[in-house]
Structure formats: C-alpha cells, structure tokens
Design a protein around this nucleic acid. Structure first.
Length: 551
RNA sequence: ACCCUCGUAGUUCAAUGGAAGAACAAGAGACUCCUAAGCUCUAGAUAAAGGUUCGAUUCCUUUCGAGGGUACCA
C-alpha cells in the first residue's frame, strides 16, 4: 500500500472507531482533504456523529477518540475546530510523496481502484452527416480527460466512437446533396451547411447515378467520417481505440438473438403495423418502436443491440457521454438494461452534459446542422488553438449550459488560465536550467531524496505546496469514482497560483554560491522545484494540453 | 401538460449534507533580483417562501425565471 489515498483509509479507520452500531443510521462518516490547510491535511465530520449518538458535545467527542488517533502511524497530530476533526500528517508521508514524484512521476497518480475492470467510454459519436461542431468539442474534452483518469486509476479503457451509418439521417444526407445539385427540390429538413455543397460538387457523378439513397447515404457518411470527422478529431488531439459502425450490428444474428430474448419475456408487441418494445410493462411512461411499419429497425433498437454487445459480448462497463438533447433516450436505454437485462447501474453510466449555445452579438442561437448555423470544431481551432478550447470546456460541470461567444473566446485565448499553468511550469524549468548551466547542479533520481529534502518541510514557503500536492492522488481517484472531471482544471489553476507565489518569494538559485553549506541547501531546494515541475507536467498531460518549452 | 438540468459577487464559474472559493471587471500597493502572460492587499454573492437536520448552495414541497426533452429522427 502506498501512502496515497489516505482519504479512503482515514474514512475506514473512522468508521471502525464509530462502530458498526452507528453504520446504518443516517449521516455517513466522511473524511476529506481540507481546502484550507491551516486546519490540517484532512477533515472529518465524525465528531458530530459521535456527539449525537452519545448526546455529548463535539468537543467531548474529540477527547473521546483523540487517543485512538494518536496510534495511527500516518497521523502526526489532530485537532478540534468548529466541531470538525482535523488531522495533520506525519512528515515522512510527504518525503515519500516527493520521492515518488521525482523517480516515477506518473506512478504518483496511479491507483488500482479500477481493479482492471473493462470500461467502454463512448463520446462525441456525432452523426456522420456533417463536420464536428462546438458542442462536440465539449464531449471530446470531457471524454479525453475521463479516459485518462480512468486509465490512471486501473480501469482497462476503450475509447469508442459510435457511427450511425444507416437510417433516416443518412438518407437525408444523400437527399441533401441531391438537392444541392438541383436533382430534387430543397426541403426544410435537409442539411444546409457549406460542406453539403462541397460534397455534392466533389462527388457529383456518384450522386447523380445512385438512386438508392440508403446506399448513397452510407457512401457519403463514410467520406464525411474519414475526411471531416477523423481529421478534426486528430487535429484536436482526441484519439479513439475503435470506431463502431451501426451497420456492423446487423451482420450477425445479434438482432434475432436479442429479439428472441425479449419475446420470451413477453416484452415485444405489434401495434399500428409496427413492432414495439413494451416499456410500459417495466414502469416507463411509453412503449417504444423497434421495427417501423416499413420494416426498418429504429435507432433505439440499434442502440439496444449496440449496448448488448458492449455489456454481454465484450463484457465491459458502459460510460456514455451524451448531450442533453439525448437525455430521454439515455433514460430509456438505462431502463432497458437495468430492468430487463439486470445490469447494475454502476456498470451502466451516462454523463449527460447540457448544451453549448452559440452567442452572437449578445444573442443566443441554437446551433443546427440542418439550418447550417453552427461553428465547426475546425473553424474554432483556427481561431483560438487547441489548448484554450480544451481548458474552456473542461472547467464547466456537465450540468451547466455553456454559452460560447466567439469574440470572447478569441480574446480569452490570449488571456486564458492555461497560460497561467504553462507559465508556472516554464518558471520551474527555468530555475532548473539556471542551476544546471551556472552551477552544474542537477536533480538525480538516484540520490537519497527523502533525506535531502528534510530541512525544508518546516519552511513556510515549501510546506503548504507539498501538502497540497499530497491531495492530488485523492483528487484523481475521486474523479475516477464520481466523474467530476471539472475539478481537475480548478485544482491545477489553484496549484499554479501557489507555484507563482513561491517563485516570487523564493529566489532559489543565486548567481554566486558562497560555500558547501549553501550549495547543499540549494540542492535540496532543486529537488523540490523538480517535484513542482513534474506535477505541473502531469497536470498539463491530464488536462490534454501540450507542454510548452517557453511562452 | 408532463419529465430532466440549472438559478451563488457587476459578469463567467466552483463547492461527495459540513468551515461559501476562484477568474474577469473595480479599487490600492510592491518590485534594479531564476522572462511581470507574474506577485501582495481591499470590496462584493447562495432567486423567493416553507420543511427535514446538530448543520442546507446541496435533500423534500411550493412559487418564479432560463435551457433541454416528451418522433415509426438520430
């Protein structure tokens, strides 16, 4: 067991102190990293719980358990404030942290809470009927961050893009190109973006001679996937392990198999010439069509098959990132898998993020591919670059609607918080470079780091930083559990702030070193600077940003 | 009409039922020093009303306001 994840350990210890008698009563015991480190490294509500149970004051509760706490090897001291229990960690925990960060930086953030479980994280999955837009960027950023964090946390992650390469929308794309060529009349529902015009001109011959709109649609969808979507994802730095095509689902007997399963459970019925799945019988408000009266399978049916494949054939947990416009669809799918296929909600999770609205001249406009009123990911990147967009979207909770103003974004990308983080890392690097160039002092991963760092742990410029760093593994595993990725940019911004303050107050490398004693102290400080630098680089990587050599 | 999300500082956002925190904008300041895209300080907020709780921005009820959904579209 590493020194990491003391949060969970403390919680377990406190639980046992509280005793099993109290476990089932309301109000669970908590242990958390303190944001205000002057209280101590970790806090807990345990005193409130004991106080209530024994009808004593929280302060008396503290005296009751203080002796237990003294026996925990990681804890140096504990205190009582505002009814909370606070504990401060022993210094050797921080030495251990520094050692790991210098020797194996990535390992510092890795844990095994995933226990090798397979998880398919599906994100973006925009229809291949047009280029990716602003809203897709939000999903891409979130998907990237969560994939990374889940991998760090011991999950076996597959990043997947589901391609709807059949159905009404694909046929609509075919018809839209025909309308653009003047072969058929324009309709309200057709796609109108400039790319439709481009596509229709480039592939005019093929479009003219293909009567089968489904076949033409599939043909064009593949082109859009390859020459727009994949290119833009690559430019944005988002990678996938697998592109899964909807048409693949119907190449095996999967559809028959799942249908038979549902029929056996009496969940399939015929009505109005169509085939329905009887969701009302599992408590849903409405039944849902799975085969249309024209004999075609619906998107909902495909999605049942697709997720059946994920869960039962590939034996993976499911994590889907969906826009709010798919919310009810997600709810129905969850219903099917939890109630009919008895999948645990824990292995079938959705993050539904709210919409991204485009603001132009102070007015909110709903983006629409059909109306041709949207900003593509491509355009966005050429205006602002990758990093500002990534940071911009990642900082929002999925629950909040994002209003995106291109004018503000352009201005913002010049004064973006990401520069603040990059700058902190560059500053640390400059210190290390100066020490190497001027005094031939470098930080060796092989030296006895823990011992070397010893005198600095009580220094008020150094101690708060290392104690803040100690909280990062808890944050990362917390995100792997609760998926609140937006905590990441916040943490790294705050951390960078502390690094800048440190830089301003502490002049690490003087031009002239007087004696051996001073040299040794500088060596120790450099170990610390190296650790800060490593942490910032880890953060830049986790946030999906590109490390900068200089600004 | 019903379902979901949201309402926090002038603005944009945070806060597993726990000690309301940032950024931008505003005001003040320091710096001949590893690049100031930086640092230090000040002021400022939980839509309204009830309820549960030792404790509510968070949970429940109602009202008001914003967005999304309620297709044989995806």
């Amino acid at each position: 067991m590493t020194v990491h994840l003391f949060e969970q350990k403390l919680k377990n210890i406190l639980k046992s102190i509280l005793g099993s008698a109290h476990a089932q009563s309301r109000g669970a015991v908590s242990a958390f990293c303190n944001s205000d480190l002057s209280f101590g490294d970790y806090g807990s509500n345990i005193l409130f719980l004991i106080a209530k149970k024994k009808k004593i004051s929280p302060q008396d509760a503290y005296y009751l358990i203080a002796t237990y706490l003294e026996k925990i090897p990681e804890i140096a001291s504990s205190s009582f404030k505002n009814g909370f229990l606070n504990v401060t960690l022993h210094e050797r925990i921080f030495f251990q942290d520094i050692k790991t960060i210098i020797r194996t930086p990535k390992a510092y953030l890795c844990s095994d809470i995933g226990r090798g479980k397979k998880i398919i994280i599906e994100f973006v999955s925009a229809n291949p009927t047009g280029p990716l837009t602003l809203g897709n960027a939000r999903a891409a950023v979130l998907g990237d961050a969560l994939s990374k964090i889940l991998s760090f946390s011991g999950f076996r992650v597959t990043r997947e893009y589901y391609v709807n390469d059949r159905g009404v929308q694909t046929e609509m794309l075919a018809k839209s190109t025909k309308a653009a060529l003047g072969i058929i009349d324009e309709e309200e529902a057709f796609y109108k973006g400039a790319y439709v015009k481009d596509l229709s001109l480039t592939y005019a011959e093929k479009i003219k001679k293909t009567d089968d709109n489904a076949a033409l649609g599939k043909y064009l969808a593949d082109i859009i996937l390859e020459s727009y979507i994949k290119q833009h994802l690559k430019a944005f730095g988002t990678q996938y392990d697998k592109f899964f095509f909807e048409t693949e689902l119907y190449r095996s007997n999967l559809s028959k198999k799942v249908m038979a399963h549902l029929e056996k459970k009496n969940l399939v019925l015929k009505k109005d010439g169509a085939v329905w799945i009887a969701l009302t019988s599992i408590g849903d408000p409405k039944d849902e069509v799975i085969i249309k009266s024209n004999g075609e399978f619906t998107y909902f049916w495909s999605d049942i098959l697709y997720h059946y494949d994920k869960v039962f054939i590939r034996k993976s947990a499911v994590l889907n990132l969906l826009g709010a416009d798919h919310l009810d669809h997600a709810r129905r799918l969850k219903s099917v898998f939890e109630k009919i296929f008895s999948v645990s909600p824990h292995d079938f999770r959705f993050i539904v993020y709210q919409m991204v609205n485009l603001v132009k001249n102070g007015e909110i406009m709903r983006m629409s591919k059909r109306k041709g009123n949207f900003i593509t990911l491509d355009e966005l990147l050429s205006e602002t670059g990758i990093d500002p967009i990534r940071f911009f979207f990642l900082k929002y909770s999925p629950d909040s609607t994002v209003e995106f103003d291109m004018n503000v974004a352009k201005k913002d990308s010049q004064e973006n918080p990401i520069w603040y983080i990059h700058y902190a890392s560059v500053r640390m690097r400059k210190i290390l470079e100066k020490a190497a160039a001027l005094h031939h002092l470098t930080v060796s991963p092989r030296s006895d780091l823990a011992k070397a760092f010893h005198p600095l742990i009580k220094n008020e410029l150094y101690a708060p930083l290392i104690r803040r760093i100690h909280q990062l593994p808890d944050l990362v595993t917390g995100i792997a559990r609760d998926l609140h990725a937006h905590a990441l940019p916040q943490w790294f911004y705050e951390f960078s702030k502390q690094v800048h303050a440190f830089y301003e107050k502490e002049h690490v490398v003087p031009d002239i070193i007087a004696d051996e004693e001073q040299k040794n102290l500088i060596k120790q400080k450099l170990i610390f600077v190296q650790a800060l630098h490593n942490i910032l680089l880890l953060g830049i990587d986790l946030l999906g940003l590109t490390a900068k050599q200089k600004l």
